[in-house]
């Protein structure tokens, strides 16, 4: 039942979701915490976690920043 699951996921909204503007504001802080301590990230920024799960464009920006930060460390 792949389609049904996907539709169900799409229609699901998380009240903690902070939206794009707040997520982008804190993205540089968030990404560093993700690389150091993913567990702490979930506790500290549940609204950003919820947002990045639901928002494709912000997720893409996060992936890009994560790649930039990881590339620099290597």
């Amino acid at each position: 039942m792949n389609g049904w699951d996907e539709l169900d996921r799409f229609l699901g909204t998380d009240p903690r979701d902070v939206g794009c503007a707040k997520a982008m504001d804190l993205l540089h802080v968030y990404v560093e915490l993700v690389t150091r301590d993913p567990e702490a990230t979930r506790r500290r920024y549940p609204g950003i976690v919820a947002h990045l799960r639901a928002c494709g464009p912000c997720r893409d920006d996060f992936d890009g920043l994560l790649a930039a930060v990881s590339g620099n460390a290597g």
Binding site: M24, L27, H28, V29, V31, E32, P57, D60, D61, G64, L65, A68, V69, N72
Partner: peptide, 22 residues
């Protein structure tokens, strides 16, 4: 100072690319 300066800077580059491709 909530992150390294370079991380903050990278964000500008990524978001500019994102906006331009949009």
């Amino acid at each position: 100072g909530e992150s390294r300066f370079t991380t903050w800077v990278y964000k500008f580059a990524v978001l500019e690319v994102s906006a331009k491709l949009g």
